[in-house]
């Protein structure tokens, strides 16, 4: 059986004054029905550009190449704008980090939900669509849903705005939801609620989810599969359980070490020193080698391939298995 969404060797480049710059580099991933794939990485890892590529929302200077993005077997890369518009929102939907900038400040919540329905349905009377909008708000456990329909985004809290975004994304019952850091701007308590809500909606609808985050704590709450991205490439890929029990790539281990934990000691946090290089300055060889504590000369020369270490666990690192991490 093939996966619900298959991303096959996808690259995204941007035309700049200095020529084409590749932001997403030959990424292969898949999401199953009812499962959650977490894409993990720091700012600049290419994870957001990857999700915009999947949605067909790249700016005009963006160029996609690759062997396909298949939704239930249908290749989205060959679709024209019109065909993609009918898929977007209806079969793949997306939620963003900052709901305040994604919602229109001058329209009520009800108007915006009706608008989302109207773009895929020209016939049904507005009164019926408004009823569906109300049901969508109830589905995301919004308090006082009737009143919310008439309110403006600024009248809602950050958590409620994110609930509206989720309601809007799910109103057409998409098969795939792409969530780009939907909880990063929220308090941990509201984050916990939103994560639980997304999980429950997934259980009810069977949608596949691509969840983008930089926080491995959040990953452990929600992921079934994990792909760690660095500088446009997938450097490690495994099930969530495997990633946390047997992290192999030095970058993954570094990210894990930098998460402050309640169950850890109070010792100094480890940090991955330095920052992700910009795409015009990607180093040769392994792109992580300048920040890597395990790197040697070979890492600066040889481009590591994503290889299967144990079944279902792929790592792109010349040094794996790291000494002491063989099992």
């Amino acid at each position: 059986m093939s996966a619900l969404l298959e991303i096959d060797n996808l690259s995204t480049a941007f035309a700049t004054d200095h020529g084409a710059v590749t932001i997403v580099d030959r990424v292969t991933l898949s999401v199953e029905k009812g499962r959650t794939l977490c894409i993990v990485g720091e700012s600049g890892s290419g994870k957001s550009i990857l999700s915009l590529s999947l949605m067909g929302l790249l700016p005009a200077s963006g160029m996609i190449s690759g062997d396909g993005v298949r939704l239930a077997g249908e290749d989205l890369l060959v679709l024209d704008d019109e065909e993609m518009r009918s898929i977007r929102g209806r079969r793949i939907a997306m939620i963003f980090q900052e709901p305040m900038t994604s919602l229109n400040p001058v329209f009520t919540i009800g108007d915006q939900l009706v608008e989302a329905l109207r773009s895929h349905d020209r016939k049904t009377p507005t009164r019926q669509l408004r009823q569906r909008a109300l049901e969508a708000l109830k589905q995301v456990e919004m308090t006082d849903p009737e009143r919310r329909l008439g309110q403006f985004p600024h009248e809602l809290s950050g958590g409620m705005r994110q609930r509206v975004m989720i309601a809007m994304a799910l109103i057409m019952q998409p098969e795939v939801l792409i969530a780009d850091e939907p909880t990063t701007a929220l308090d941990v308590s509201v984050q916990a609620q939103i994560l639980a809500l997304i999980k429950r909606l997934q259980r009810d609808t069977g949608m596949g989810i691509i969840f983008i985050t930089h926080d491995l704590g959040v990953v452990s709450e929600i992921a079934d599969e994990v792909a760690v991205m660095y500088a446009g490439r997938v450097v490690e890929r495994a099930s969530a359980e495997e990633i946390f029990r047997n992290p192999q790539h030095p970058y993954t281990i570094g990210l894990l070490a930098s998460v402050p934990r309640l169950d850890g000691g109070e010792e100094r946090l480890h940090s991955v020193d330095g920052i992700v290089p910009t795409p015009d300055r990607f180093p040769t060889g392994c792109r992580f080698h300048p920040r890597c504590v395990f790197a040697d000369e070979s890492c600066a020369q040889t481009d590591p391939q994503l290889l299967e270490l144990v079944p279902g666990h792929q790592v792109a690192c010349l040094k794996v298995p790291l000494e002491g991490c063989e099992k």
Binding site: S157, G159, V188, A192, Q193, K199, G217, F244, V259
Partner: peptide, 24 residues
């Protein structure tokens, strides 16, 4: 206690609908 229960903890996978955090 509720604030503690909201902190994501690696390995627990507690983002389930029965979560303790209630209301705003």
């Amino acid at each position: 206690q509720m604030l503690f229960s909201a902190v994501p903890q690696i390995g627990l996978g507690r983002a389930n609908p029965d979560r303790a955090v209630k209301g705003e």
